[in-house]
Design a protein around this nucleic acid. Sequence first.
DNA 1: GATGAATGAGCGTTCATTCAT
DNA 2: TATGAATGAACGCTCATTCAT
Lengths: 233, 233, 233, 233
Amino acid sequence: MVSAFRMTTKTAKPAAAETEALSRSALRRQREREQRYQSILAAAEDLFASTGYHQTSMEQIADAAEVSTGAVYFYFKNKEDLLLSLLDEIGYVLRHLLADEFNRAGASLDRFRGAGLAFFERFCRPYPEKAAIVFRESVGQSPAVELRRKHLFDKLNGDLQAALMRLGHDMGRPVDQNAAEVMAVCIMGIYERVAYHYMIWQDRRADLDAIGRDAVGFILGGVCQTTGKAPCT
Amino acid sequence: MVSAFRMTTKTAKPAAAETEALSRSALRRQREREQRYQSILAAAEDLFASTGYHQTSMEQIADAAEVSTGAVYFYFKNKEDLLLSLLDEIGYVLRHLLADEFNRAGASLDRFRGAGLAFFERFCRPYPEKAAIVFRESVGQSPAVELRRKHLFDKLNGDLQAALMRLGHDMGRPVDQNAAEVMAVCIMGIYERVAYHYMIWQDRRADLDAIGRDAVGFILGGVCQTTGKAPCT
Amino acid sequence: MVSAFRMTTKTAKPAAAETEALSRSALRRQREREQRYQSILAAAEDLFASTGYHQTSMEQIADAAEVSTGAVYFYFKNKEDLLLSLLDEIGYVLRHLLADEFNRAGASLDRFRGAGLAFFERFCRPYPEKAAIVFRESVGQSPAVELRRKHLFDKLNGDLQAALMRLGHDMGRPVDQNAAEVMAVCIMGIYERVAYHYMIWQDRRADLDAIGRDAVGFILGGVCQTTGKAPCT
Amino acid sequence: MVSAFRMTTKTAKPAAAETEALSRSALRRQREREQRYQSILAAAEDLFASTGYHQTSMEQIADAAEVSTGAVYFYFKNKEDLLLSLLDEIGYVLRHLLADEFNRAGASLDRFRGAGLAFFERFCRPYPEKAAIVFRESVGQSPAVELRRKHLFDKLNGDLQAALMRLGHDMGRPVDQNAAEVMAVCIMGIYERVAYHYMIWQDRRADLDAIGRDAVGFILGGVCQTTGKAPCT
DNA sequence: GATGAATGAGCGTTCATTCAT
DNA sequence: TATGAATGAACGCTCATTCAT
């Protein structure tokens, strides 16, 4: 689980009686801890998405999560760490979503279509707050956040790039590594801006099917351009 | 001139004999004023791009522009106004750059190529700070800034959309308005993310030619997809 | 207690076994909180009275109360709130002081005498800072402060007016309501200006007995004028 | 004229050709200067009374007077000086108004009545801004302003005190000087608070006649108390 | 004399973070 | 562990005043 409570290094206590099975009360505490961690993260996600990262104070997050400010600092190093954790969680969700599509059986081009549609239908539509956080709230906030964002995009780009190269290979028209990278970046750009435009700036959740299809069509056109599949329909 | 000093509303008494030509000293004052306005804006651009909007204090901007904090507030309503003005200026530059390409003579597809290359070569490369501001620093800062950003993108999208519909018409394959809008958004997304990836996150100014060509290739692929020109080379 | 720490709205979860008696440490914290609140208020009172409301900075108040600026803002919404709270406290003290006199047994006219003397002897003399704040520092500072001041005077006037009407009734010469109000306002005016003149502008604390007696004499003359008690001695 | 432009000490120029008659242009300049001085003062009076001394900026005053900020500083040393000048002017008006009443022929008690009525009818009613400035805006603003306010009240008190002593003498019941002073202060207090209550806090201009009569009645009662005139009607 | 752009000290306020209990 | 009061550095902004033109 990506959001599992990160074990603090100083886990002193358990050392003594940490028999193979944790005591019942220890288990309960563990569970409560995890719940608190999640509720704080959820509160932060909602507030950052709705009010903005800078406009949200730690106290508001604590209030929304029904804990004290001190508790927030027990679970997270600082405000930035909250955003980083959010980014990690969202990255995890998003990567797996896309990976699932690319690991499906079927014609390789269909996988690109599937991934695109999944991005719009199964990420943006159900989780608009997560989209707002990766694409809006985490932009340009601090070097550390920017770095984490970069890492996230690098991974997504890498996945896409790999899929493109596999596709080129399958089509008998090997794609240059650099070109594949640029294409991956282009695809991510389309995902991002289409989501931003139609989900963050406008609320076109209702039309997302059609929009997604058009965007995916554009992507496929770009992809075929290089991999040569002539009338990419 | 986009950056002409915004005339204050109370443009003074029309005076008696303020003939067509302003007095020499009045002209000089006017010029100096404009210079100050520009130097403050330039200082803000540099600092926002290098240090980040929130990490830059008004005092730093004043110092960099070699004026007092009060002077900054004389020329700009507040910090946000500085960012909005920057956005306006950048939007002006960018739109004209792209419009110039679309108004050129020649095959319509070539214009898309030209616009894409111009974006990378003639906007991102010479003005990396401006790119950092539109694509990074102005993201998610405040409702007003977000709105201005949206307006800017709406205009750019509109230009692109119009060009796409003209192209479809020329090709004898009229493009649906909504589809054209989505395509325009896709193209802007590619511009943005490629610039972000290769200019803001990495410093690949040297490779920008090749990268730009690949990205433009992708765009043309997406465009042809719909407008039907078969082997878009 | 007027100065009891204003209960914050979010009075926490009622907790499980928070029996009728608060834990000892909770009680202590409560007490310390109240002390801090009072010490900040006292610091503000002193500084406002000696230096002036506008001339006193929040930092000075914090320093004088030996707390941080942040602490001041924890206990009071802002600087204005400090003045409003002071006004409330002073109003409470003053009203009760006068009410006590009017509720005494004895000839009704004597009560007016008693109230007047109490105002000078038991309010102005021991609390010159409080007098300075109601009569000087809170004048014309902001709409909210002015309103609170008005409310305070309205209450004092109301008390006086009621006493006057009772007196008229007792004397068999009912007083018109409007006339009673004007008389109440006149009495407050005398209180205020005599205090201002002899306590704020001059330091005639030593002569306050005689001055008070003369002023009270004047008031009684005015009162008898209407209620008819002939040679009001 | 109290508001005549204070001659600056450095009136260098005239020294040479200041023949008994000023040249026509010199006269015109003199007149314009006086007009500007007055218009600035009037603008300040309006703004201070309506918006508050601290809430009014020098720029607002300059704008309202249709001059530059610099001009305001040519005619007045600083913002405080503006308030001091206003206080002087108002003091002049008020003192003469009351003096006129006291210098009238007739029974001496009637003069007190006349003065009181004049205060309400011929000062407060036509010049509510002036009342707002003496009684509200100039209170507790700075040591210098407070001092000037004190001087003004001292003079008014002195006039009243003198009148009281004359009255006592006329009545054959000489009044003690100190007692007369306290009575004067009481009368001023009534003037002030009744004006504040019914003109500044409420707008009872319409009922001012009745209110004034009641207040004057109260004053006469207080006065007779000491000077012995039995049934002061 | 008049202008108004420029100055810059100063202030109120915020809020991420800490730490005694 | 959890709490929440306390901290204090930092910042945006105002505005009385000055002075070159």
